[in-house]
Simulated assay, not measured.
Amino acid sequence: MTIAELLLPELDQELATTRRVLERVPDGRGEWKPHPKSFPMAHLAQLVARLPSWTTMMMSRTEIDIAPVDGPKFPGYTIETTATLLAEFDRNAAAAREAIANAADDDFQVPWTLKRGGAVLQTQSRYQMLRSVVLNHLVHHRAQLGVYLRLVDVPVPEMYGPTADEGK
């Protein structure tokens, strides 16, 4: 099996689970946050919707600077409707799946570097970075979003098994 063939089922599962969580984000609660240091719900949901786009970026480049000293900045967060977030997520998820499906095994071995302000934060193979910076990162923030849903009394969908709301 190729690396892409091994990654795609996991990606598909995580994307489907993530979409179920994003579908539950309530419109009109975008400013809500559980703690003053926390992201507002709309910003966390937008981050979750955008994370799959890192796959296509990783597969087409060998580095990214998330805060370049003299370059373009990443777009900030806005408050969007759930429908808008789902549309962005669906576009990003389809592109991510295509980028992995079209990759050769050698593409996953290429060193990939994450920088901030020109300083190297991390360099690993694309495969390792896809696992940590995309998949694991997506799961982490999706779980945070699940906690936000619980705290605003929105039923939490199944992720890796039943929740108090579903799957009993």
Score class of each variant (00 low, 15 high):
residue 130 L to Q: 02
residue 107 D to I: 06
residue 77 Y to Q: 05
residue 88 E to G: 11
residue 119 A to D: 13
residue 75 P to I: 02
residue 101 A to K: 12
residue 121 L to A: 06
residue 99 A to C: 07
residue 123 T to V: 10
residue 116 R to N: 12
residue 97 R to F: 03
residue 152 V to D: 08
residue 150 R to M: 02
residue 151 L to Y: 04
residue 74 F to M: 15
residue 126 R to D: 04
residue 77 Y to E: 10
residue 89 F to L: 07
residue 75 P to A: 11
residue 135 L to Q: 09
residue 93 A to P: 01
residue 124 Q to I: 03
residue 76 G to T: 07
residue 146 G to E: 07
residue 79 I to G: 08
residue 106 D to K: 15
residue 153 D to G: 07
residue 115 K to W: 00
residue 105 D to R: 12
residue 107 D to F: 09
residue 135 L to M: 14
residue 121 L to S: 06
residue 135 L to A: 11
residue 146 G to Y: 04
residue 137 H to L: 06
residue 104 A to G: 12
residue 132 S to V: 12
residue 102 N to W: 03
residue 108 F to T: 07
residue 121 L to V: 08
residue 145 L to N: 03
residue 138 L to T: 01
residue 148 Y to N: 08
residue 117 G to Q: 10
residue 113 T to S: 15
residue 126 R to E: 01
residue 131 R to M: 11
residue 74 F to L: 15
residue 104 A to Q: 14
residue 137 H to Y: 05
residue 130 L to F: 11
residue 74 F to K: 13
residue 90 D to A: 12
residue 114 L to Y: 09
residue 97 R to C: 03
residue 154 V to C: 03
residue 140 H to K: 07
residue 130 L to K: 01
residue 112 W to P: 08
residue 130 L to H: 04
residue 88 E to K: 15
residue 115 K to L: 13
residue 146 G to M: 12
residue 108 F to C: 09
residue 88 E to L: 13
residue 76 G to W: 04
residue 84 T to R: 13
residue 155 P to D: 04
residue 146 G to H: 02
residue 80 E to K: 15
residue 130 L to G: 04
residue 86 L to I: 14
residue 120 V to Q: 10
residue 101 A to G: 12
residue 124 Q to M: 14
residue 104 A to K: 15
residue 96 A to V: 03
residue 155 P to Y: 07
residue 127 Y to P: 01
residue 139 V to H: 07
residue 138 L to F: 03
residue 133 V to M: 14
residue 129 M to E: 10
residue 133 V to L: 15
residue 151 L to V: 00
residue 80 E to W: 10
residue 153 D to A: 13
residue 140 H to M: 08
residue 133 V to G: 06
residue 95 A to G: 07
residue 116 R to M: 14
residue 111 P to G: 08
residue 107 D to N: 14
residue 88 E to W: 09
residue 112 W to V: 10
residue 91 R to P: 00
residue 92 N to F: 01
residue 82 T to Q: 15
residue 126 R to T: 03
residue 87 A to M: 02
residue 119 A to C: 04
residue 139 V to T: 13
residue 77 Y to S: 10
residue 122 Q to P: 00
residue 109 Q to E: 13
residue 135 L to V: 06
residue 130 L to I: 10
residue 81 T to W: 11
residue 93 A to Q: 02
residue 148 Y to I: 04
residue 112 W to Q: 08
residue 96 A to F: 00
residue 143 A to H: 04
residue 111 P to D: 15
residue 123 T to S: 14
residue 130 L to P: 05
residue 122 Q to H: 14
residue 98 E to T: 15
residue 109 Q to F: 03
residue 85 L to M: 13
residue 94 A to D: 04
residue 144 Q to S: 08
residue 78 T to M: 09
residue 107 D to C: 06
residue 112 W to R: 11
residue 94 A to Q: 08
residue 110 V to M: 12
residue 83 A to I: 02
residue 103 A to P: 02
residue 88 E to I: 10
residue 126 R to F: 01
residue 129 M to I: 07
residue 92 N to S: 08
residue 110 V to T: 15
